[in-house]
Design a protein around this nucleic acid. Sequence first.
DNA 1: CACAAGATGAATTCAGCG
DNA 2: CGCTGAATTCATCTTGTG
Length: 625
Amino acid sequence: VVDQCKKWNLVWVGKNKAAPLEPYEMERLLGFPNNHTRGISRKDRYKSLGNSFQVDTVAYHLSVLKPLYPKGINVLSLFTGIGGGEVALHRLQIPMKLVVSTSSEASSSKSKVIDELIGMGFSEELVIKAIQEHGEENLEEITNALLSYAEAEKMHETENEDINNNYFSDDNDDVNIFLGLSSSDEENELNSFHEDGRLQDLIKMGYPRKEASIALERCGEIASLAEVVDFIFAAQMARQLDEFWAAPDEKEQRRINEPPPRRRKLNTDIASDDELIRLPNPMIGFGVPKEPGLITERPVPIPNIALGPPYFYYENVAMTPKGVWATMSSHLYDIKPEFVDSLYFCAAARKRGYIHNLPIKNRFEIQPTPHYTIQEEFPLTKKWWPAWDKRTKLNCVLTCIASAQLTNKIRKRLEKHERDPAVQKDVVDQCKKWNLVWVGKNKAAPLEPYEMERLLGFPNNHTRGISRKDRYKSLGNSFQVDTVAYHLSVLKPLYPKGINVLSLFTGIGGGEVALHRLQIPMKLVVSVEISEVNRNIFRSFWEQTNQRGDLIEFRDVEELDDHKIEGLMDQYGGFDLVIGGSPCNNLAGANRVSRTGLEGDQSSLFYDYCRILEAVRSKASRMRR
DNA sequence: CACAAGATGAATTCAGCG
DNA sequence: CGCTGAATTCATCTTGTG
């Protein structure tokens, strides 16, 4: 195994889980700023990074230039690549008055060269001006033009200061003052990225050790100190607000679940009127933290037959074909679904319906809470976010992402017509459609898997070790952990000693992660999941978090017949929670091919959820007798 | 075989308005 | 109440490449 690890340069990212480096990790190893190569295909990122300088080494050699050229240097950069030399000079704080860059890769490097010119030490206005005057095709003329500009540029030397300091993180002015560190100290600080170091600093700054270490765990090791501080601060704010909302006034609560007091028009549809379930607006279910409209009693009480325990929790997409939720509700004891949009819990929308028989009083959030806006969740994007892109929330995380070509197209369009409102609107539309974030000048890129993990409330690297495509698919199909945890939080006081969980369609274990983060011990988890990669991820999580309970895995819901269920319940004393979200393939709006409704090939597995739930409930009632 | 890229709309909701 | 346009959406399939 070690031989293989050496051969392929693997690192250990989980129990028995060795994975190749991610592009952003290579960037760090080679001394590049975060996201330096982002916006091109993964393959190209590896290729470019593999062909690049190690910045610290080169910088060591180049450092002798610093006293020689206090006012800056002119650079002719051959075979520039991703600009390792320029990055080295930049980090040495040697001003680059001029960079003329050439590259042997003609086709793909043109815009890359332009990016270098802009990103490294050159005034962006000048580069844009040169491009506009000479067309982006003619590299020679552009560089000539820049040469002549350079003369004029000599006058104001210190102009470029604000382009600097995009290393590793965001605008950390506040933290800087707070820590009382000089900027060079801080750079070393951030550069070392030592976990203990960051923890020590946080404690020194007066944060409780536990809070600090939770925040570190949640933010992940690539987060800067500033990000972590931000995170803790937001969590503290959230707690205060939580206390504020803990005593809700019972008056203004009627606008929640489908209030229409009068009958609608006479209508001959088969499944209309009572059958038709309308989505609430705003989609806050029985209430969400930090928003008005919290209620503590269900408007429609749970039928006696469905009262828990055992409790159950069913989830699926909110926007289904018509009548689907009415059908699902009718098969789940006529309980009205609770529709919640996860944008009230994190920085991304996720409209989902939940049918459950849990109490809804005294819910609480898990700490620390995620950030509520894109720019706070991903501070690195703040620097590049155009003023005309008004988004503060992302759209729903799906199973597919945009190609790197789209990033390229967007950049080229913006380099030409940055100020054209029509182009801006078109770009924003594309960004919304593909859920892009700004990671560089004119550079809008899709989210990385680890960023999706953060958005959805999973620990860093939760899905690591499988192919990128599978990571996106598994994450797109998952719960938003904070949302689910908010609903499940009522179980905590009920089961201080832990619970037995039957987890259907486990996926990557969103429900279990929620329980884990609620610190509700899981004495037993019986998990059913068809996909092998997902089972591996979940088992990894189980081992990594040192769970003491038993984990029993099944592949298919078909395997779980009444006999097996009763056997398990006899052996372990029954289940306390049945949790799962059945496949949404045939219900989801993004499906152009087989959106065939609840009776579709995969989505019809909903009926297996019902069958198994009923088996569990009837056995439980017999066990009580 | 794995993966990246590209092509492939419709169902549903909602705000706004007459 | 009906209309219109805009916005959103836990995706699938084929093809080319290495």
